[in-house]
Design a protein around this nucleic acid. Structure first.
Lengths: 350, 350
DNA sequence: ACGCCTCATGATAGCGCTATCATGATCGGA
DNA sequence: TCCGATCATGATAGCGCTATCATGAGGCGT
């Protein structure tokens, strides 16, 4: 029964839309409509076609569909890493929301130094995604250019800039850092220190933290920078260094440490406890992110809450609005900027 | 200069391979070869074509390429979640290795009850991935069937079965559970308890743990099950329940608790410390996974080390061997099974 | 009963790329 | 010097689907 291969290319062997059409006794385009725009087809025909689809085990080919329709139903998401739950949850929320809407997510990991940013973007653009999500702000002007040229809806997340490429869902890291300084000051602490991971957003938080500290009269704040992403281990090591260093410098020991992530703060907790020091009596600790564990460490960790899932969900919504609104020039086109804010959470560690 | 649209479909406006060919003064197929099989083209021609590509800003269209070549250069990876670093690292290792080889990763999140497994798979198959990675064992026979029918290389990971769909990279969770029981017994503990997340693999570890315990004469082991994925919070709550329950039951308080993940164990640590109990003097704790923090908690956490990145890398290699070996019937076809094993790590908490 | 509109379905023509086979140029050995 | 082998490049024909326009059947007001 095998049909002879007509010419060059060998037959794929897999069921195609035409096979379904033949079995159902309709034209291929009708099958296509049943799958994509069923409202254009009568209920009877839909039944017949669905039946044929089930019988043949047909699985649509989105490569072909995407090529013909110029819509890939793919959204690319670029994160520096997902190995810390900071971004993982945003990614999950994004994937959930987009999944409901029939889109899938292509994951791009840029790594922290963002070295491969440009190559990665090229690889991604070659899939013709209908939308792109970027974590943080793109720096290479070439990359920015490419993105603009591709005319794809873009959301930048987790950061804030008045001049996004297109759309943005984020919050001000500088303000968050400043709010932490204000909080610590209000609680009566006067000798701050900071442990931060070496990434751009942490640097912004540092900047906000330091200038607000200075405004409150707290200066000479020691800062220890560790490689990104910040981990419990590196936080603990940094804290050990801090505690050992201070007396030698003639500094007094800090009475409050702001960590650029909850993971780092957890390390600080461990180091302080291992030395038998009292927390927050001897030293207060503040994290950032309000990861799920923050409320339940011992002692519970004061931190800054970011609604990480909301970032993903809102970013998905922003993209969907543009993608479903037909081509690029949809109604809500032209860069919405959403500030989701943050919230300082006071717990036992301060 | 705008060419008039020849017939129905409007021109895309974006640069195509033909445009590049025209500018370079060669045929389209030559441009294609420069990009995909440069060894077939002379250096001169490559130079000319590369130049034209740069000048036009051409970005290949992989939808079209994939359709024509029947290779999407896409690998789909299905995980229950990536919001705990257990899988996130495996995913990163996978993406890294595949990225080097020119493949990209489509992320599918099945959620823990694996409810949407079937829908998700359908959506994924419609992209015609060149390979599929599945976390855990597929249960629905329909899904298994579909997968077989698609004739795509498949790797299952993080689990172990003598009858994988195709290839497998994992380890025996039962043996790991048993090894923990042996370790605790060897250290002199005699009253075990277990806190486990409600997922299949944790259940296997429990089974191994309980039967090895019984072999050692430790019976009546209380088990508390919490929703997956296990978190610090749920671990802490479970431990609180355990400590409060034991006396009422007439049980003695356990002297060692095995947690099905490090995150749960961290919660146990917090709960034990918050009660001022001594660890491991009053109670020993054992985790699972050896996440980056395990070695640096206070006290450091005994656990079972799984080389999570190796799982990703080896899975990628397994897929690559099949995918690059042309079609399905490559040399290494027919299901390799790799057991990456595990290692019991003894630290201060036991 | 007629023309006009709406609606369901179909025919046609690509989307942008690559597999396959064909062609002409170059080369070396006898 | 001639012939077949080798190499670089090209012409052709789709991959499987959908946008677009066309068509015919039915509905309805007058």
């Amino acid at each position: 029964m095998s049909r002879s291969t007509p010419s060059g290319r060998r037959a794929s062997g897999s069921v195609t839309l035409s096979d379904v059409a033949k079995l159902a006794g309709v034209s291929p385009i009708t099958v296509s409509r049943v799958l994509n725009r069923p409202e254009l087809v009568t209920a009877d025909t839909i039944g017949i076609v669905r039946d044929a689809i089930a019988r043949t085990g047909y699985v649509p080919n989105l490569l072909a569909g995407g090529l013909a329709s110029r819509r890939s139903r793919l959204v690319a998401a670029i994160f520096p890493t997902i190995a810390n739950s900071m971004f993982a949850e945003t990614m999950e929320a994004l994937a959930d929301r987009l999944g409901e809407a029939g889109y899938q997510v292509l994951l791009g990991l840029s790594g922290y130094p963002a070295a491969r940013e440009d190559d990665l973007l090229e690889a991604i653009l070659s899939r013709r995604p209908d939308g792109i999500l970027l974590t943080g702000i793109i720096h290479s002007p070439g990359t920015r250019q490419r993105l603009l040229a591709a005319k794809v809806p873009v959301v930048e997340i987790w950061d804030f800039t008045p001049t996004p490429i297109d759309m943005l869902v984020g919050f001000s890291h500088e303000k968050a850092g400043a709010a932490v300084a204000d909080h610590l000051h209000a609680k009566g602490y006067r000798r701050f220190a900071m442990i931060e991971a070496d990434d751009d957003r942490a640097a912004l938080r540092r900047r906000g933290f330091l200038s607000a500290s200075a405004r409150r009269g707290v200066t000479g704040v020691p800062v220890i920078t560790v490689p990104a992403p910040g981990l419990l281990r590196t936080g603990r090591e940094a804290m050990a260094r801090l505690l050992e260093r201070s007396p030698l410098d003639g500094f007094q020991r800090p009475d409050a440490v702001f960590c650029s992530s909850d993971a780092l703060a957890q390390g600080v907790l461990a180091e302080v406890q291992s030395r038998g020091m009292d927390l927050p009596g001897d030293i207060a600790v503040m994290g950032f992110g309000d990861l799920d564990f923050a409320a339940h460490t011992f002692p519970a960790l004061s931190t800054v809450r970011i609604d990480r899932r909301a970032i993903g969900t809102l970013a998905a919504d922003a993209l969907l609005a543009r993608m479903d609104g037909l081509s690029g020039a949809g109604p809500s086109a032209g860069g919405g900027v959403i500030d989701i804010g943050f919230e300082v959470i006071e717990r036992a560690s301060t």
